[in-house]
């Protein structure tokens, strides 16, 4: 029996302490955090840079404005409510349809207007926000996800998380909601993460609750072998997001919309570690290789190429 730490180190697994101390603290300037912590700001920046994002229907800033929700929604039947400063997917509510004055949640259960208003009120009071500060509620387009993931997602919106280190994409996974995650695509809430082969854009088997899985726990469909359309474009999009906020260690969440193609959902300055389990591959070799480089190409194309090249060269034996 060998010391587990040695085995993990050899596998190149990035630890929570090392992620915080060596990557987030050294590469992510604190003053840039508001750019990604405030999803309204991120959206604004992305739009200025010509990066596609889900359309913003409106922002609820005061308790009083909750009453005007109907006006704000207009004809939109489906929408998403989320806290502008939310963390870890908390407080995100996906409404797929409206029936009279009631709302249908992603899980299919119904919700009264009162329930929805209370949820928004909680968002405003800062219940889901970093540090519990009062917040704004964003109401935006509910992504009509590309049917490509239909078999391997239980309701909700699957998204594609890419770790971008100093502008170079180093790992990706697709995050698939489960019954346990209540339509949310966050792994710690029970969603499935399936690894993606960076070179081909083909999904691999994945991880759920830190255990390896080959099929979706709710649908039973195999996770591996799904080819993600426009993978090259998607990687480029992720690499370009580095230019938005200049955060060295960045998680980019992209959704594939049926009509609009890849949309950047949000950026994350503290992306989690489970992507290593989903890909069955540690992040450290690629991160260290990039750290050793004196210069990193300025164009996003070259950075994507660099990332793919590094991953081949540092492939685990």
């Amino acid at each position: 029996m060998r010391w587990p730490g040695t085995i993990l180190r050899e596998a190149g697994i990035l630890s929570m302490n090392q992620r915080n101390a060596d990557y987030i603290m050294l590469n992510n300037k604190r003053r840039l955090y508001p750019l990604v912590d405030d999803k309204l700001k991120t959206k604004e920046l992305a739009q200025q840079a010509g990066i596609a994002v889900p359309e913003l229907y409106g922002v609820v800033k005061t308790e009083h404005a909750i009453g005007d929700l109907e006006d704000l929604l207009g004809e939109h039947r489906s929408f998403v409510v989320k806290p502008a400063h939310g963390s870890g997917g908390n407080g995100i509510l996906v409404i797929t349809d409206r029936r009279q004055s009631r709302y249908v949640k992603a899980s299919g259960s119904m919700m009264s207007a009162d329930d929805l208003n209370h949820h928004i009120s909680n968002i405003l009071s800062g219940m889901f926000s970093l540090g519990g500060m009062p917040d704004h509620a964003m109401v935006e387009y509910c992504v009509q996800f590309d049917p490509i993931f239909e078999d391997v997602a239980f309701q909700g919106v699957p998204d594609i998380r890419t770790i971008v280190f100093r502008g170079v994409p180093v790992a990706s996974m697709v995050r698939l909601p489960t019954r346990a995650s209540d339509g949310k695509a966050n792994l710690h809430q029970g969603a499935v993460g399936a690894g993606i082969d960076m070179a081909t854009g083909l999904t691999q088997s994945g991880v759920c609750q830190n255990a390896r899985v080959t099929t979706h726990p709710d649908t039973g469909a195999p996770l591996a072998g799904i080819s993600i359309p426009g993978w090259d474009k998607l990687l480029l999009l992720a690499a370009r997001c580095y230019d938005l906020a200049a955060l060295g260690y960045l998680g980019v969440d992209v959704v594939l919309d049926r009509e609009h193609g890849p949309l950047v959902l949000e950026l994350n300055a503290r992306p989690g570690l489970s992507i290593q389990l989903a890909n069955r591959r540690g992040l450290l070799p690629a991160l260290k290789a990039i750290e050793r480089m004196k210069t990193i190409p300025t164009s996003a194309d070259e950075r994507v190429a660099l990332g793919l090249d590094l991953l081949v060269r540092h492939a685990p034996s």
Partner: peptide
Amino acid sequence: TGYRLSEFWRF
């Protein structure tokens, strides 16, 4: 920057 003991379980 080493591993937490709980990460032996996580990974």
